[in-house]
Design a binder for these strands. Structure first.
Lengths: 194, 194
DNA sequence: ACTTAAAAACAGAACGAGCGGTCTGTAAAG
DNA sequence: CTTTACAGACCGCTCGTTCTGTTTTTAAGT
């Protein structure tokens, strides 16, 4: 039940945006009653926060997938970025997450509910990349820095869709970014990936 | 009058977000009557669209500033990016613009009002950078591609503020990105800047 | 230069709709 | 018998929009 509501919420956030996502719309899309929703999620912020946590746990992304799988080696940087775009950021869940992040910026209640989780996730994501990749810059945490940059670029790209007339241009940007990043971020530095 | 309303709208978008920006809030902040607003802007979308156009015209940014000023040479890439972040994207106007872009993604009425202008602005901005900078990649429009990437990165960065515990980390990302971009985007290629 | 008609700019009340949140009621589970 | 899961009516509020006035500006005619 909770899962059904959250799934509907993701679809609504992606298609309608945060502003137009209401209990009524989610209710209709999920095919559940009003009472069912409010029972599990007393406020809109609670619903969105729960949705965000679901999205975050699913979106630790290609990085950790590789890390978790004992057989897998870390993906080449180019492929890693292309997948992060196509499968994670530019997906219903990824776009819903962008809506939530934007809402967080100005909704204090929502931010309070998500603050700790957001920081945790960021730390986790950075730690994950650092285990398999290294940067070429002088700083010891250069890989984390570069990966954070990549995530921010991809998130910004979600907003750019409406800017360009030719959808192909987006793909070219991702590819160019990935090629540039390849010169800075490299696989498996001195650490062993056993 | 129009200008006063738009100024208030920018502040509201920045501080409250698109969802919470209403005629009532703008009215109160601008100190004008309801009738005055609705006379000039019949719908909310019209108001936001007018705000966006104002922001776009002010935000052609450091690139064109340099271009327009007959005395000025193009800024070094690192400085260009640092200024684009601090003065343009990470400012009330820049953050308001992000709110509008996010709203555009899911609001068809607003998108229809802005579609042409957004495409125009994108084309203009890309043309501007191409007159003073060149990319090192194989494509002929590499500079445009790289500058579009930079804008998207900076926009994504607006959402990241709430992610990090240490504000300094944002600054490090901008600096690292600018240093990386310096290796790809260079000033004044074969063209003359008289 | 003065009158006057039309138009634009502003003021603010009023509206129906949809919102988030609450509350009472029912059914199943422990 | 208490607790949890769901159902759905209800409420006050705020939203975007519309409408009716009032003031100011504009422009024309003579």
């Amino acid at each position: 039940m909770k899962a059904k509501v959250i799934r509907a919420a993701i679809t609504c956030l992606d298609k309608l945006g945060y502003a137009e996502t209401s209990f009524a719309k989610i209710q209709a899309r999920a095919g559940v009653s009003r009472g069912a929703i409010t029972h599990h999620f007393p406020t809109k912020q609670a619903l969105v926060a729960a949705t965000a946590m679901e999205l975050l746990s699913n979106a630790l992304g290609p990085v950790e997938r590789r890390l978790g799988a004992p057989a897998g080696e870390p993906a080449p940087v180019h492929e890693l970025i292309m997948k992060a775009w196509g499968k994670v950021v530019n997906s219903p869940g990824g776009r819903a997450m962008v809506e939530i992040l934007v809402a967080c910026r100005t909704d204090p209640d929502l931010y309070d509910l998500l603050k700790d989780q957001l920081h945790d996730w960021d730390r986790q994501s950075r730690a994950a990349i650092a285990t398999s990749y290294a940067g070429t810059g002088p700083e010891p945490d250069d890989a984390e820095l570069l990966w954070s940059m990549t995530r921010n670029f991809l998130r910004g790209l979600v907003l750019h869709d409406k800017f360009v007339s030719d959808p192909e241009y987006i793909a070219r940007m991702v590819d160019r970014f990935a090629r540039m990043m390849e010169t800075q971020l490299i696989v498996a530095p001195d650490k062993e990936t056993t």
